[in-house]
């Protein structure tokens, strides 16, 4: 075994990682060779000095404190985050439920008024009382001239009139409906 060979395997020899026969060969060489023995002792001293260089002990109090800090940064933060997330989720759900109910109420109202308006015009003449208006209008004038009953518009006219009112009317309806024509400048 040469000096060069020994230098290569000396760390493995100290770490006891060589097979038995090679280790024995190294041991015998070290007994005879002063240069290699000096190399071996240097490596061993380095190992001892490093292994003896333990980190200082900051004490039990420090480690208790660190455990508490880690817990605060992890477990407690996670629990708080979870609680906040749940609360936000609940708020979102409540908001969604509120909007849903608002839409339902609006839809119900639309249906109700539509039914009311259309229902009131089915096979039933419109009377002056339905479209009563205090101001000057052609509707009122027409009523005064009618002796038998208050009918002033045919069902088709009523439908058109209502449609006109709902959609703010076409020019024809503005003329027919005194209320709207009076409101216009």
């Amino acid at each position: 075994m040469t000096h060069r060979h020994i230098t290569d395997v000396i760390d493995d020899y100290i770490d006891e990682e060589l097979d038995i026969s090679t280790a024995e060969e190294v041991r015998r060489h070290l007994e005879q060779c002063r240069t290699c023995r000096a190399e071996y002792e240097l490596a061993l001293r380095l190992r001892n000095i490093l292994s003896g260089n333990s980190a200082p002990d900051p004490g039990e109090d420090y480690f208790n404190e660190v455990s508490a800090l880690i817990s605060a940064k992890t477990v407690e933060t996670y629990q708080t985050e979870t609680a906040v997330t749940n609360l936000e989720q609940q708020r979102r759900n409540n908001k969604r439920a509120f909007y849903r109910s608002l839409v339902s109420v609006a839809a119900s109202l639309v249906i109700f008024f539509t039914a009311l308006i259309f229902g009131s015009t089915q096979n039933k003449p419109v009377t002056v009382n339905v479209l009563s208006y205090q101001g000057t209008s052609r509707v009122a004038a027409a009523t005064e001239n009618d002796d038998n009953d208050n009918v002033i518009l045919t069902p088709a006219e009523q439908r058109n009139l209502i449609k006109g009112i709902i959609l703010l009317g076409s020019p024809g309806h503005f003329e027919q409906c005194g209320i709207l024509s009076d409101l216009l400048p």
């Binding site: 002990d57 900051p58 004490g59 420090y62």
Partner: peptide, 12 residues
């Protein structure tokens, strides 16, 4: 360093 850490480090 906090006081207790200095004490422990010097105790070694």
């Amino acid at each position: 360093l906090p006081g207790n850490i200095q004490i422990y480090m010097s105790r070694r």
